[in-house]
Simulated scan of single mutants.
Amino acid sequence: MKDSYLEAIKLIERLHRQFLEVVKTELDRNGIEDINNVQALILFNIGSDELTVGELTNRGYYLGSNVSYNVRKMVENGYLIQERSPHDRRSIRVRLSDKGLALCKNIAAMFERHAKDLEKGISSTKALESASEAYRVLERYWADMLDFRGRSSLLGTG
């Protein structure tokens, strides 16, 4: 089990890096230089929603430590519109601008191309669903570990 677990962790990390490279290649192919791959994925995940910066993190739309920096860069480059919430003036909400929506459509088209390519025999829906279920099991396991921080059972001491 340990070897399989460690292999899964390595694959998750490697797949994530490769996927970010795929998104970067898509941006480069379209001559888009004013946004990076992580920021493009944040935009895609926001879609038509209007969210606070905290919600971006809580919903898992952002992987990284400096979401405020990325939001600021996307606002500066015209991909996001940032406004104070009318209900809570301390809260800042973001939504996609027309430029952001256009990029979001571009990324959606990329995903559509990928899905069509995968359907041509590279993979099956069932195989991807099985992989996703395995990832959800790990996600729940790790989330449970974090919910019980500090307990000795996490350290294997009983």
Score class of each variant (00 low, 15 high):
F148E: 14
L96D: 08
D98S: 04
T52K: 12
S130A: 06
V23Q: 02
E119D: 10
H16S: 06
S91R: 15
A127E: 13
N77E: 10
A134N: 02
N45Y: 03
I12R: 04
A115Q: 04
M74Q: 14
G60Y: 00
L80P: 10
K126N: 09
I81V: 15
V23F: 08
R113A: 00
D34R: 09
G150W: 03
L43T: 08
G121A: 10
S48D: 13
Y79R: 15
A109H: 06
W142G: 11
Y141H: 12
L155C: 03
I107Q: 01
D3A: 00
N77V: 13
L103F: 09
L27A: 11
L96H: 03
L155D: 06
S153K: 05
G78S: 14
S91N: 13
E83Q: 14
I42H: 00
T25S: 02
H16F: 04
T157V: 01
P86T: 11
E7V: 02
N58F: 09
F148Q: 05
K73T: 13
A127K: 08
T52I: 14
L43P: 07
L20Q: 05
I32K: 14
D144P: 00
V71D: 11
S132G: 09
H114T: 06
E33D: 15
W142P: 03
R89C: 00
R136Q: 13
L20M: 04
P86Q: 09
V94F: 14
V38F: 04
E33G: 14
K126S: 07
E26W: 00
E83M: 15
R59K: 08
E139G: 13
D34Q: 14
E83S: 14
N66M: 09
I9Y: 15
G47V: 01
A40D: 12
E55P: 11
A134Q: 09
F111H: 11
R17H: 07
L15P: 01
R113G: 00
F19D: 00
L80A: 04
G78L: 13
K105H: 02
D28P: 07
D147V: 11
D3T: 02
D28I: 05
L41T: 01
S91D: 11
L51W: 10
V67C: 03
V38H: 02
F44S: 09
R90I: 02
G31D: 15
Q39D: 02
K105W: 02
S68G: 03
K126F: 04
K120E: 00
D98P: 12
G47Y: 03
T25C: 01
M74F: 15
R136A: 05
M1W: 04
A102D: 02
K24E: 13
V67R: 10
I35E: 02
L154K: 11
R84T: 09
F44T: 08
G150H: 08
P86D: 02
M110I: 00
S123T: 13
L6A: 10
S124Q: 09
S153V: 14
E119R: 15
L6P: 04
